[in-house]
Every structure is written in structure tokens, then in C-alpha cells.
């Protein structure tokens, strides 16, 4: 739930009074071109950046107050832009990292099994350094690491960045699985507008820091104005 949220970089408003809400257990795609404010939005929601004004809440939890580690403990995980894995650690260590703060060690172990089920490739490579993974595997690892914190809300920043179309398709399908079978709510930020809208339930189009359109993903795909401006046909 976001209301009138404004975030500035110095004098420039990266996000200007945007509002939208995401229903529990759904997949929302935030699309828009470079500089639309998508990454800024994500960094604000996860506590990496301060907002200037407005409100952002998830259930009863205030997203604009506290550090990222505080949000993670309250069920909000963020996968930052550019395959956020730690290259010097092994695959398994990267995953364990996401559950370090959890006290329920046994359940954390079963969460890891769920991740391996979702991404079998990670299990094959569990003892390898993350540095040796391919781009797609790194993205799987980043999502897996975030999932290890057992989030209710998962913020994904451009998981398709720099990946081959086939791999992107795979990643999007896995995200859909996380929403459908694991009951996690996902906000997916994407430049790959068509791919994201196809897999999402709900869509928000950002343009230069303001909401240009929003609605059901299928309606947005059908909307001629959105098609012309963002989907390229």
C-alpha cells in the first residue's frame, strides 16, 4: 500500500507523489523506462533510501521507518538490481545468509529445501563460489537468498537484466511459482515490460516518477496507449 510517496535525490524528485496498492498473494509488475524511478521506489521500500513524504505500508508494518535488516525481520525482502549475490561466498553460504537472523533453525533448513526444489541448479552447485555461476543462476541465487528469509512481500529489482530471453522466461515462471504455490506477494520491477506484464496480475506504469497508468496486467497489455509507449507495438 503506497500513498503519495515522494522520494528525492537532492533537488530532483525521482518519485513524485505516487500511489498504488498490491493485493496480498498477487504478483504486481512496476514497469517503465530507464530513469522512471523504479529502482528508487524499491530502495525506498526496503529501507535503503529515505522518502521525503508520503506513506508506504505492508500489512501493519511501516516501510518508511527503520533499516533494511528491520524490514527483513518483518517479512519484507528485497533483491537489489544486478544479481545481488556475494561472489566470494559459496552458493550455500549465500542462501544461509538469508536465514542467519532466523531463530527457527530447523525450519530454515526446510526453507532451503524449498529453494533447491524451486531451483535444482542451485543444489547441484551448492559448494561452488557464487562467482562461478552464470547470470541466470546468480539471479536464481539472489531470489533464493531473499526467499530464505521467508518473506511475505518480495521486492525484485530487474531480475531479467542482462539475461538471455529463454532464461528470463524461466526466471519469470519461477517468480510465478513463488506467488502461486508459496503464497508470497511479489512486486517486480522491470524494463522488460511485456514479459513482466504477461506474468503479472497487476501492473503499474511509471514515467519520470509519476504513475502513468495502472490496472490489471491483462488490461494494460490491451491498452493501446500503453502498448504504443511501453510495449513497442
Amino acid at each position: 500500500m503506497i500513498e503519495d510517496l515522494t522520494v528525492s535525490h537532492g533537488a530532483i524528485k525521482a518519485i513524485d507523489a505516487i500511489s498504488f496498492s498490491v493485493a496480498k498473494g498477487t504478483l504486481a509488475a512496476v514497469i517503465g523506462s530507464n530513469g522512471a524511478g523504479k529502482t528508487t521506489l524499491m530502495r525506498t521500500l526496503s529501507g535503503l533510501k529515505d522518502a521525503s513524504s508520503g506513506r508506504a505500508t505492508w500489512m501493519d508494518h511501516n516501510l518508511l521507518h527503520g533499516k533494511p535488516e528491520h524490514h527483513v525481520r518483518n517479512g519484507v525482502s528485497h533483491v537489489s538490481e544486478g544479481k545481488s549475490v556475494i561472489a566470494q561466498l559459496t552458493v550455500e553460504e549465500n542462501l544461509d545468509l538469508g536465514a542467519l537472523w532466523r531463530r527457527d533453525r530447523n525450519e530454515a533448513k526446510s526453507t532451503k529445501d524449498e529453494v533447491f526444489q524451486l531451483f535444482p541448479r542451485l543444489e547441484e552447485r551448492r559448494t561452488q563460489l557464487a562467482d562461478t555461476l552464470s547470470g541466470g543462476e546468480r539471479q536464481m541465487l539472489a531470489i533464493g537468498r531473499a526467499y530464505m528469509s521467508r518473506p511475505q512481500l518480495l521486492l525484485l529489482d530487474e531480475p531479467s537484466l542482462g539475461l538471455a530471453p529463454l532464461v528470463v522466461e524461466q526466471i519469470f515462471q519461477s517468480i510465478r511459482t513463488i506467488v502461486d504455490t508459496m503464497g508470497v506477494t511479489v512486486v517486480l520491477v522491470e524494463q522488460n515490460a511485456m514479459g513482466a506484464l504477461k506474468v503479472a496480475d497487476y501492473g503499474v506504469v511509471l514515467n519520470l516518477g509519476v504513475v502513468a497508468a495502472r490496472g490489471k496486467a491483462s488490461d494494460l497489455i490491451a491498452d493501446p496507449a500503453v502498448r504504443a509507449a511501453y510495449l513497442g507495438y
Partner: peptide, 12 residues
């Protein structure tokens, strides 16, 4: 190695 990622993983 990566303080921001560690933070996002819930590490203080």
C-alpha cells in the same frame, strides 16, 4: 564483502 547485500539479507 558486500555490506548492502548483507543488510538486505537481514544482517545487522
Amino acid at each position: 564483502y558486500a555490506p548492502e547485500i548483507a543488510q538486505l539479507a537481514g544482517i545487522r
